[in-house]
Design a protein around this nucleic acid. Structure first.
Length: 646
RNA sequence: GCUGCUGUAGCUCAGGGGUAGAGCACUUCCUUGGUAAGGAAGAGGUCGUGGGUUCAAAUCCCACCAGCAGCUCCA
């Protein structure tokens, strides 16, 4: 019998008979390893199933269930078991696909056509139970490769129309493989754990939703069932706990609890009302924004909400963006439209006089409220709405200023985001879409400028092919929310085409008319979305510089009420946001209410001792008891915390 | 927009063809208190909107509106 040599990650070389399986190798190394093993990797190949024979010498890595690669195998195997369970409940169900996915909430899903026998959320516990049974039955996952005609026959026998379509897409010459576990068989490349029992008890069926066949909205809607699988039950429980914690930070929940805003009621879908407390936070964000922009060389401008259709014709919006616009305003027999963007107004401002090369660049910023028709199903709290205020700016510059200005803008973006404590984001460079204006050569050049700037700043990014705006490529920065979803905030877009359409010019040093280049940029994106992200980021506990109420002074008894009212009034006069609570509740109840329910940063207790000493005993929601201090010392503390942005 | 689900008091939710329920919040009173819920009483709802079935609809049916989870699409 021929033997092969397998090199372990620690450098050991071991000899095995040809055809040894990964499982046998793991067993030969140790019982514990064999138990934890879910797959192997030979050399730099894709992971493969433990139960397959190894025919050639190679380096070998045993993949265990608690590693990212191991969890992927575990989750993919769990998806098969989920499909098996669905088929047991709904024998007529037709399977499409069930991959492991990289998502903070779910580990895998399976897309299934349930026909006229739908499942509801109430069926999920039953499905989870069935999965548990299939796992307990411990069916081996058996790999079988079939010739194309046999493969198609097998799937036809099982009534799996979608799998037949998938087989047709497998290139000629590629192996067509199936994994069988008990009576269940699925077209699949693998790898899988050796048997269903290996999946263990860290599984869950979490959610049910629709999903288009092939991700195409013109195709049939299938049912997508999301589940998760972890190395053990404990990890699964921890995940459920995380989901609960994230739900508590949901900005829609906190918006109601803390009375910050609402998007519901009769006002219409996707529209926002900012209540006093949310409005105050927005005010502070805007104040900070204005100051930073004025310091950063921007001018602040304002423009109206509607404009004649001619303007949107010239800008190209009517040709490229009409389905996203609110239309049909009749003003003296002429059509006006609500603005979906601010740029045409800033361009008109530019064109009100002749511009010199010496004037450039212009940096014009506006908190401009825009309206866009978004499909009903896409609306989501403050994150996706139909009326929102962009923190917009348009920069008009000479072509030779492009690289420098882009770097400056991206640097500014990161500075502002860091001020709010954001340091985790995703950067995309979005390139020319199918529908675009301008010349491809210009686009290539613009894309290059953006890529060069990102490289110069040392930022990692991904290319989003075809994701650009119709007028130019862009750099997008996405911020993560409490559920791990990324939301686009900042966007920096280069635009050669609008200056062309509006025939913008400046007089260059040689006396010739030249075309300026334009940068569109939003940095918080929309104030609504950014506020939503802020709420989740802070879990509703705003730092002192943003908090609508920075502190509440609590009277221990009725005889301390006057002192508390007076101190609070004095601090308010000095510009601090301090309330007094002289209600009849006990001190513990007041602390619980203000510190833990209203999420106020500080409370100050005033009783006999404090009245005597002219002090207040301060407690911070995170730092705890800070001891007795004078009103002046409390003011200093608030100043210090404000400047530290905590 | 699509598929599925939901809509009952300010909030969280139970109920369900024939007087509308709970907890928290709210108001009043008692308690004058020391760091994560003191006690009692009271008030509060056209059961999302419109239509239909029925002797009778909050409950069943239909449409619309709004929300939730994805999908598709985007700040």
């Amino acid at each position: 019998m021929t033997s092969i040599q397998l090199t372990l990650p620690n450098g050991d070389v071991r000899e095995y008979p040809q055809g040894t399986t990964g499982l046998q190798v793991a067993e030969s190394i140790g019982k514990g390893l064999a138990k934890a093993a879910v797959g192997i990797r030979l050399g730099s190949a894709e992971p493969q199933s433990l139960q397959l024979p190894i025919d050639e010498s190679a380096t070998i890595e045993i993949i265990t269930r608690d590693t990212p690669a191991g969890l992927e195998i575990l989750r993919h195997s769990a998806a098969h078991v989920l499909a098996d369970a669905v088929k047991r409940m709904r024998p007529k169900a037709k399977l499409w696909k069930g991959p492991a996915i990289d998502d903070p909430r779910f580990g895998y899903y399976y897309d299934i056509d349930l026909g006229d026998e739908p499942l509801t959320n109430d069926d999920l516990p039953e499905l989870e139970k069935l999965m548990g049974e299939i796992i307990a039955e411990d069916h081996p996952f058996v790999l079988e490769e079939l010739p194309r005609s046999d493969a198609k026959q097998l799937m036809a026998d099982h009534g799996e129309d979608y799998k037949l379509a998938t087989i047709d897409k497998i290139p000629e010459g590629d192996p067509i493989t199936f994994y069988k576990s008990g009576d269940f068989v699925d077209l699949c490349k693998g790898p899988h754990v050796p048997s269903t029992g290996k999946i263990g008890n860290g599984i869950a069926v979490l959610s049910l939703a629709g999903s288009y066949f092939e991700g195409d909205s013109s195709q049939k809607m299938l049912t997508r069932i999301y589940g998760h699988a972890f190395a053990d039950k404990k990890a699964m429980a921890a995940h459920r706990k995380n989901l609960e914690e994230a739900a508590k930070r949901d900005h829609r929940r906190l918006g109601i609890d803390l009375d910050l805003f609402n998007t519901m009621g009769e006002l219409g879908a996707g529209l926002v009302m900012w209540h006093p407390k949310g409005g105050f936070v927005r005010h502070k964000v805007e104040e900070f924004w204005r100051n930073e922009h004025l310091k950063g060389g921007y001018d602040i401008v304002y423009s109206p909400h509607i404009a004649r259709s001619d303007l949107w014709q010239t800008s190209g919006h009517l040709d490229f963006y009409k389905e996203g616009m609110f239309t049909g305003l009749d003003v003296d027999g002429e059509e006006y439209l609500l603005k979906p963007m601010n740029c045409p107004f800033h361009i008109l401002m530019y064109k009100t006089k002749r511009r010199s090369y010496r004037d450039l660049p212009f940096r014009w910023a506006e908190l401009g409220t825009v309206y866009r028709y978004e499909k009903a199903g896409t609306l989501h709290g403050l994150m996706r709405v139909r009326g929102f205020t962009q923190d917009d700016a348009h920069l008009f510059l000479r072509e030779d200023q492009m690289g420098e200005e882009i770097e400056r803008v991206v640097g500014f973006v990161l500075h502002i985001l860091a001020s709010f404590g954001f340091d985790e984001f995703e950067i995309n460079l979005s390139t020319r879409p199918d529908k675009f204006v301008g010349e491809p050569a210009q686009w290539d050049k613009a894309e290059q400028v953006l890529a060069d700037s990102l490289k110069k700043l040392g930022l990692e990014y991904e290319i989003d092919a075809g994701g650009g705006a119709f007028y130019g490529p862009k750099i997008d920065v996405k911020i993560k929310d409490s559920l791990g979803r990324f939301w686009q905030c900042s966007t920096v877009q280069l635009d050669f085409t609008q200056p062309e359409r509006f025939d913008m010019t400046y007089i260059d040093s040689d006396g010739e008319k030249k075309r300026p280049v334009m940068i569109h940029r939003a940095l918080l994106g929309s104030l609504e979305r950014f506020f939503g992200i802020l709420v989740e980021h802070y879990g509703g506990a705003f730092p002192v510089w943003l908090a609508p109420v920075q502190g509440v002074l609590l009277a221990v008894g009725e005889r301390h009420a006057e002192t508390v009212e007076r101190m609070a009034a004095e601090l308010r006069e000095r510009g601090y946001r301090i309330d007094a609570d002289t209600s009849a509740d006990k001190i513990g109840a007041k602390i619980r209410h203000h510190l833990w329910q209203e999420k106020v940063p500080l409370v100050g207790v005033v009783g006999d001792q404090e009245v005597e000493a002219g002090t207040v005993t301060v407690r911070h929601r995170k730092d705890g008891d800070l001891g007795a201090m004078s009103a002046n010392a409390l003011a200093d503390l608030l100043d210090r915390m404000s400047s530290e942005r905590r």
